[in-house]
Write a protein that binds this DNA or RNA. Structure first.
Lengths: 351, 351
DNA sequence: CTGAAAGCGCTAACAG
DNA sequence: CTGTTAGCGCTTTCAG
């Protein structure tokens, strides 16, 4: 009996130890070897219909002997389902999206789906290319967590495919999963005030096409106003080049020596500020209290002293997966699904 | 003319504004609308053979009108290629693998491939499940960057598919891409010694099935011995729970008050040590110099003061993608491809 | 320059 | 309990 150990692939052919070329076995090969029809083999594989134990054994032996693996592509063409989901993120190299992707993939895997990943890199054209590919019946559904301007991507308007977006509006009929950005902004600001901060600076990355950061900023301003304090927001409108970041935060601290509180719209910015503060020998939290945003486990492990608003990534993934499955099953789902955030208070805040 | 804006999907059907049910258009629909044969439509799509401009225009108009997208699955069945690569990592939530996955996906995308991702989570059974799926002609090739024991995964032995592994031995006929772990271990230790450290501790995560860390450790021990110094290696044989880590590093520093140098086999451990040192008011680098390993950009941005051995992830991804493409094209590739590492010296080392 | 027919590997429908 | 037939949507002969 030929063994496939040490076999080599060569395009679509198998070369066994004796150098005999043989194609990848298909169902008819198994059927022939087991002395049954292809249909029977299919039935054994899918455990459908009534089958005699003898047939099952014969077929399974033949499959094992041939090292047979059903061709998923053929099955997909027949069933009109790929059991595959496409996920579009800016980049999995970013810990936030790495964590999100991990959790999405995990939950989809448990639900029987595979995951195609696309790093759109804040590049509208790349996002369009991915979409065009994925819309070609390659996937049963789509999770969109990128941050490009959807207006420039017409594919979203006539995408005939279940989609769920994360923290982003695409179009009215596409459901969205977010965490409660307004509540997060309020929580951060209120905590700083409750701990005695009066001169609180807020930084925000520019995401023109996303209400997300706007809501965090809006909440910050509302709370400041409610307390008779003056809101000061700085927009980060450059990338995240360390040198520019350093200059930026130094400028803020130069312009606001009175600052005793700081709320950054994401943890990376908050961490950058902590570094700047340390260099300037500003004591945290005594002189300056700091809250970031996101609370990704990896980041928290590296910088445990940073207080932050934690987004419920676990729940967000679960809800997104659930919504997409319902859409795939023909259910109509729309609207925004807002999940609660929580504060992780640590050493960058006073007791 | 029917427009698909606002259309809903419902299994495989399109429902247009007027509520009329219509299937996803296929090639025959386009052919009918354009008054040509399916073959001609195929030719237009693939720009194959001689075509009159008139025909091309007719067909393209029909495709646009119907919002036609070729069914990739059918095309894959026919061409026997999926143009898809499977990537298996422990988890993209880990910045190292997030970065690696990002770069692999980017390079594969540029080469015309899509990427299926699997987070095997150090779970042998999960890795096997992924493999079984991916081997079913779902992908044209596989990148394996997990760390499970390959002995427990027989699928690798008779996998009839192009594979490249990253930093891991799978079997003699499967090419491997690594960075030079031995050189990295040497470099780290030598730099510490050159800067005056005499009592250098080394920590290493337990990866029994991988020579990787063993090589780093081996190099450390060799260099120490060459310099007449006593090597001290601690194995981290628990997960990475912060509380255990804290205790662990405290214990090391308790047991070795004389320590003036520290080489951790990965940056997360090194960062944990930096935290412990700060809590114990041990000055870095004056009292204790520290070098980590990996040098992922994200980590470096968050903890710029950490010196580290930088793995050339960019190059590793490029080489892996190149090797896999060559394998896919029928070329036989084997052996270990070792890429050079470099030191990133920062504040955790003396000038 | 264009079309008809066969087939990629599988499964569903229908027959026995 | 098992087999025959047709077809998923595309591309590739081979004819014209």
């Amino acid at each position: 009996m030929a063994t496939f150990c040490g076999s080599r692939y060569n395009n679509n052919e198998l070369v066994n130890d004796k150098g005999i070329v043989m194609n990848q076995p298909k169902m008819t090969d198994v059927a022939k070897k087991a002395g049954v029809s292809p249909t029977t083999v299919s039935r054994v594989i899918n455990r459908r219909g009534y089958l005699s134990t003898k047939t099952i054994n014969k077929v399974e032996a033949a499959m094992r002997e041939l090292n047979y693996r059903p061709n998923m592509v053929a099955r997909q063409l027949q069933s009109q389902r790929t059991m595959t989901i496409g996920i579009l993120v800016p980049t999995v190299a970013n810990p936030f999206f790495g964590e999100l992707t991990y959790k999405l993939e995990r939950d989809f895997f448990n639900a029987g789906f595979k995951v195609l990943i696309g790093n759109a890199e804040n590049d509208v054209e790349k996002e369009r290319l991915y979409l065009q590919q994925l819309l070609a019946r390659q996937v049963d559904g789509l999770v969109i967590a990128t941050h490009n301007h959807q207006q420039q991507i017409p594919e979203y308007q006539n995408a005939n495919l279940p989609i769920v977006s994360i923290d982003r509006y695409l179009r009215a009929s596409i459901p969205n999963v977010s965490s409660d950005n307004y509540a997060g902004g309020r929580l951060a600001t209120e905590e700083l005030i409750a701990r005695g901060a009066k001169h609180i600076i807020h930084t925000d990355s520019v995401e023109r096409f996303n209400k997300r950061d706007y809501l965090r900023q809006q909440a910050y301003q509302d709370v400041m106003n409610e307390h008779g304090l003056t809101p000061v927001t700085y927009k980060i409108d450059f990338g995240s080049q360390p040198e520019l970041m350093r200059q930026f935060f130094n400028r803020i601290l130069d312009e606001h020596p009175e600052a005793d509180g700081f709320f950054a719209s994401n943890d990376m910015d908050a961490i950058q500020l902590l570094q700047t503060a340390r260099q300037r020998e500003i004591r945290v939290p005594e002189d300056l209290q700091v809250i970031g945003y996101d609370g990704v486990p990896t980041t928290t492990r590296i910088v445990p002293e940073l207080s932050t608003i934690v987004q419920p990534l676990d729940e967000m993934a679960k809800v997104a997966v659930d919504i997409l499955q319902r859409e795939i099953n023909g259910e109509r789902v729309t609207g925004s699904h807002n999940l609660p955030v929580r504060l992780r208070a640590s050493a960058s805040l006073k007791q």
